[in-house]
C-alpha cells in the first residue's frame, strides 16, 4: 500500500493555479508523481523547491505571472505544458542556461501514458488522439458546451480572493474572444509548422489573419 506522499499532494495543489484544473482532475491523470519526479529531474530538486515557494507567493489565488522571475516563469510554463501535453518542452535558451541544466534542451514525451493523460484534450471536451476512444459515431455529435470561465475558477477553488490578474467577465461571444473575455491575439495561436521536425514548443506563433494584414 502506497499512500500518495505529502509532497506530491502539495505539488498537485500548487499546480491548480497553473493548469486551471482542480486537484480531482490532476489526480485523475494518475501522473502526479511522475510529473513531480520529471520536474525535479529537469530543473533540479532544490531549484524546484525554490520555484514552488515563489509560485505560492505569486498566487492570490490566481497566478500573476509578472510576480515571477523570468526563469521561474519559464518553469511555470514548462510544468503547465507537461500537465497539458505529457511532454517536457524546449525552454527559452536563457532559462535553460540560467538553470545550468546538463541535459539537452529538447522536447520529449515523458512516457506513452503521459501523452494519453494530457489535459489539453479536456479543454475542448475531447479525448487524446489515439487513446480513450469515445465510440462508434460519436464524432457526429455536436461538441459539448465549454464551461464558462467563472465555473472553472469556482471548480478550482480559486475564487476566494481577488487577484491582480482576475479575468474580466464579459458576455461577448465573438470569434476573436474567449467566453471569459480574453481577446485572442495571433501570438496566442500557433503559426505554420515550417518543418515537421520542429517540436510543438519551438514552433512560431501565428501572424494576423490575411484579411487583417491586408487592411493594416
Amino acid at each position: 500500500m502506497r499512500p500518495i506522499p505529502e509532497d506530491t499532494l502539495r505539488f498537485v495543489r500548487l499546480c491548480v493555479p497553473l493548469t486551471g484544473f482542480a486537484p480531482f482532475d490532476l489526480h485523475a491523470t494518475g501522473m502526479a508523481q511522475l510529473y513531480l519526479d520529471t520536474a525535479r529531474q529537469q530543473v533540479g530538486r532544490y531549484r524546484l523547491d525554490t520555484f514552488l515557494t515563489e509560485l505560492t507567493e505569486a498566487c492570490t489565488p490566481l497566478l500573476d505571472p509578472s510576480e515571477l522571475s523570468e526563469t521561474d516563469r519559464e518553469i511555470a510554463r514548462a510544468i503547465t505544458y507537461l500537465w497539458y501535453t505529457g511532454a517536457w518542452p524546449k525552454l527559452a535558451v536563457d532559462a535553460h542556461a540560467d538553470l545550468r541544466r546538463e541535459m539537452a534542451n529538447t522536447e520529449f514525451v515523458v512516457a506513452p501514458s503521459t501523452y494519453v493523460e494530457g489535459l489539453v484534450w479536456r479543454t475542448f471536451q475531447s479525448h487524446p488522439v489515439g487513446a480513450k476512444p469515445p465510440g462508434f459515431g460519436t464524432w457526429g455529435r455536436e461538441p459539448a458546451e465549454l464551461p464558462p470561465l467563472t465555473e472553472i475558477v469556482q471548480e478550482c477553488g480559486l475564487a476566494e480572493q481577488t487577484g491582480g490578474s482576475r479575468p474580466e467577465e464579459e458576455s461577448t461571444r465573438g470569434e476573436r474572444s474567449v467566453p471569459g473575455g480574453t481577446r485572442i491575439e495571433p501570438h496566442m495561436l500557433p503559426g505554420p509548422r515550417v518543418a515537421r521536425d520542429v517540436p510543438p514548443s519551438a514552433l512560431p506563433t501565428a501572424r494576423a489573419p490575411r484579411s487583417e494584414r491586408n487592411t493594416a
Binding site: L18, T19, R77, Y84
Partner: peptide
C-alpha cells in the same frame, strides 16, 4: 533566447485553449 513576457495560466489558459482549439 530571452524568456517571453505574457502568456496565460490557470482557468484563463484552459478557457482560451478550449475556445481556440475547439474551433
Amino acid at each position: 533566447g530571452g524568456v517571453k513576457t505574457g502568456g496565460v495560466f490557470g482557468p484563463q489558459l484552459r478557457s482560451l485553449l478550449g475556445s481556440t482549439i475547439g474551433r
